[in-house]
Design a protein around this nucleic acid. Sequence first.
DNA 1: GGCTATTTGTTCAGCCATTGAATTATTTGC
DNA 2: GCAAATAATTCAATGGCTGAACAAATAGCC
Lengths: 410, 410
Amino acid sequence: MSLTHAPAGAVRQGSLRELNLALVLGRIAAAERPPSRADLATATGLTRATVSAVVEDLLAGHLVSESDPAPRSGAGRPARGLVLADQGPAGLGLEVNVDYLAVCVVDLAGEVRHRTVHRADLRPVVPADALAQLVEMAGAARDDAADQGLTLVGAALAVPGLVDDAGLVRLAPNLGWHDVPVPALLAEHPPLVEQVPGVPGLVVDNEANLAALGELHSRPPGPSSFLHISGEVGIGAGIVLDGALFRGVRGWSGEIGHLPVHPEGRPCRCGGQGCLEQYAGQEAIVTAAGLARAELPADTATARLAELAEAGDADALRALHDAGTALGVAVAGVVNLLDLDTVVLGGGYAALAPWLCPPVLAEIADRVLTAAWSPVTVRPSTLGAEAAAVGAAGSVVRRIVAQPAGWLAR
Amino acid sequence: MSLTHAPAGAVRQGSLRELNLALVLGRIAAAERPPSRADLATATGLTRATVSAVVEDLLAGHLVSESDPAPRSGAGRPARGLVLADQGPAGLGLEVNVDYLAVCVVDLAGEVRHRTVHRADLRPVVPADALAQLVEMAGAARDDAADQGLTLVGAALAVPGLVDDAGLVRLAPNLGWHDVPVPALLAEHPPLVEQVPGVPGLVVDNEANLAALGELHSRPPGPSSFLHISGEVGIGAGIVLDGALFRGVRGWSGEIGHLPVHPEGRPCRCGGQGCLEQYAGQEAIVTAAGLARAELPADTATARLAELAEAGDADALRALHDAGTALGVAVAGVVNLLDLDTVVLGGGYAALAPWLCPPVLAEIADRVLTAAWSPVTVRPSTLGAEAAAVGAAGSVVRRIVAQPAGWLAR
DNA sequence: GGCTATTTGTTCAGCCATTGAATTATTTGC
DNA sequence: GCAAATAATTCAATGGCTGAACAAATAGCC
């Protein structure tokens, strides 16, 4: 019963074109195969004349290009397929995580056209230095993108922590960041991206949110509502509802790691008791599996766990089962509350999915009221590591697709 | 980062007027004081000429009317205020609950213009008979509405259970309903409402959802994102995000009663263990307070509890504190997940709020990661009993406000 | 090979709604 | 009584969509 069909603001004379540009471009982006102008007309309800005019604008702005005639059966003049341009605007994705820095460039079609990862323990590094290194990597990425005919039109930075609207990182516990004014720190470097109306130059966001966006826009298209859980040292969730990330009133949604699963259980660093993180966080699993923490840098813990589980190690299997059960309790609660039919396990959980999924599904079957009528899918993320960086870059180009008028008017 | 600013479908020539009609009417509906055409022009960004034309359409369709010149200071021609018409389209709200039937009529402005409640234990009544009685009450309501110059343009029925898209009541456990095809049963009676393009004649929905919508549209306007919890025999929640009810993938969101709060605790009729309902449901509280269930019809249980608590009865106070704590654990989880800043206690909880709020707030303070930076408000619902019926009727008129073109084109 | 049916894409006059400036209407303050 | 100020309307101009006609390009058929 979404009654908010209308755009928020006034619908002016020119808005009409803006809206139809977005409508047509969105269809081209969402299509399985390159659609013809006629396909777009029937799909959108616009006349062929209007579609032609709109497409002409999109072609002139290098947002789409014509592809070779698609093979088609039957009589008639052959259609010319329309695809998102492989040159033109692109998004810059940045990620600071506990044990790596990542930079990538994603084009309109969602393809990753550049990718750099720098592995290092970032915990002892002060924020300004980490960002400076990231800027250096981003400069190389921009040059590479330019060589491929791509123009960076916006950047998004993924951080494993809470970020406010202004881009201030309020708290990134595992990184040791506290009230870090990222936009101000980045403003001291030369700008990385070209300014385009309607596209913010820099967005700072939670890593789990951006990874969920990456999953949302991955090909082939998946469901438009799902829960994406990033299992790292902390456990964060990105909540995608009706094709849009739900960010909460202040942008701090998704703290699934602090859902109480044993209200009188283990104390948590958040001040509560029995939070999910204490039972299904990386450290909890590693400890339960009997692995010494010291020997395991953060980035190899899950890999080692997967190895042991693969080999049939009883302790590891039990630890994973218990973690999966705790995760399942929390997920069952979320599914009861939000009625989602898809749960994606990302981050460190992706590699552990074979052992986590069964207990999660078992808890869902037991606890979800509607489980009998409609199954819930639990699956690992299709994006690999650095999913958040890819999602970050993707979120930039999605803005262009959603509001192409700004790029065309530049 | 909501990228879905655009309407879902094509923006045709005429859509422009449709959208601006909705925009202007929405502003009039949301305004604190009757705005002038000039106010609307500055508020919406449209020109005064356009606003005048749009308002003329709205006046001709009897959706708004001009009010007496509002007192204003300063020079200049006095403005003519615009208010939602107190005649014209209205919504019919219906509610079947365990111990009453309710019918009400709400006008465009959200005023309740007619209200009938019939108290009876509905559990032994077969669905067809209950609906027949409701139709009789609705007929009287329609006649009363007609006398006041109101035309019913749609109806919404609130049911304490799970409803699918087609209006089939899959399961209403406390009512004893199971797979009840409400639209088919109501189709056997003469139609209650006038057909208007864009407004469904009948919507069947969960009682908690509609009560939440009622809260959303209550005056004065409250927050646009909140959690509304209806504490009856079962515990349901309506989730309002950004001014829209979030219904989930299949429309079965809000089953907060089955959030696990003690995963190895009491078995629940849903098949799970330790569900919130077993600790904070009406029966759980009554039992914990030492009241015999037999002596208490459902509709007096909360009133009796409130009496006892008011009188300082230790058992009742302890029972309410424990229930509030369990509720707080669940709510803390939801707030961590969705980052909401307002929780409304409705249904049976409204009367118990003085005793439930403190423990709920205590759990939130302990368990919500961001509680230190941004407070969470927990308050009782402003609507009284039969909130769902009022919300149901309100949901109908909100459709007219959101899409006035259909009414104007009739 | 030529004809027809079929589908795609473009052209163009017509039309609808918004725009912006000019005009009228109505009040306050001096 | 007049100037200033604010509200609302009028009207020619404009931008963008519409629908129908038309041109382009192919397959099927004889």
